[in-house]
């Protein structure tokens, strides 16, 4: 998806992202729908990436992304520029996800389920650590993206909010309406499963 320079206007083309965002926000607040479309074009991938990690499937991620931008349009007048626009949009996406999460009766069960029966393999843990130590590469990031999608909903949500988005565990707990202990349990589960998945990739040869 590309930005049409003719529509974004020469002023924003040459500006660094924060300044360009500020110009587009100012225009959008005045009601310029084209400016808001440019905001969408610039931030859709970031917002959709977050929504995809939270929702776990592309259909729900698309719906969540759309909701996020509709809410953003309605709230744009309240954006004061204290945070980068991308982070502000991310916050809207997270809040929207929280609203959906809290109305889903299964969600609390997902958080309670910490996967006590998940397999744990010490050898796998060693291999996974080696895999990550030697990787540090784009491939590892791509792997991680795919693995996050395979996590159970509770572990995935907590991992994405805490490790990817950087929310403190206490804030994740407040967002999801559960105790911090539950968040810690889900984090532990997410790491354990990810470690097993990294080992499964077979990209690190493990010879016991």
């Amino acid at each position: 998806m590309t930005v049409d320079p003719a529509r974004s206007g020469p002023a924003t083309d040459r500006l660094p992202q924060p300044a360009a965002d500020a110009v587009l926000v100012a225009r959008a607040v005045e009601g310029d729908r084209d400016a808001f479309e440019q905001i969408y074009r610039r931030h859709a991938a970031r917002v959709h990436g977050l929504c995809l990690r939270l929702a776990g499937d592309s259909e729900r991620a698309e719906g969540l992304t759309q909701d996020t931008f509709v809410k953003a349009w309605l709230a744009l007048g309240g954006y004061g520029g204290q945070a980068p626009l991308g982070a502000w949009l991310g916050r809207i996406a997270v809040n929207r996800w929280r609203d959906l999460w809290r109305t889903d009766k299964r969600a609390q069960q997902w958080l309670v389920d910490t996967g006590g029966e998940d397999t744990w393999d010490q050898a796998a843990a060693v291999a996974a650590a080696g895999r990550l130590e030697s990787a540090g590469s784009l491939l590892a990031v791509v792997d991680l993206e795919r693995m996050i999608a395979r996590l159970p909903a509770g572990a995935r949500t907590v991992f994405v909010l805490h490790e990817v988005e950087g929310y403190p565990q206490a804030e994740v707990a407040a967002l999801l309406g559960v105790s911090e202990g539950t968040i810690k349990s889900q984090m532990h589960r997410a790491r354990r499963l990810l470690r097993a998945m990294f080992t499964e990739t077979g990209m690190v040869r493990h010879e016991a």
Binding site: L132, L144, E163, V164, R195
Partner: peptide, 29 residues
């Protein structure tokens, strides 16, 4: 070691976008 590396990789994802499979703007509009 694993947790540290995992955290670093996860944080790197933050600004990593995933383009939607289709243009969502018409629906948003």
């Amino acid at each position: 070691a694993f947790v540290g590396r995992l955290s670093a990789l996860a944080a790197a994802l933050r600004e990593d976008g995933v383009e939607p499979a289709r243009d969502l703007w018409p629906d948003i509009e």
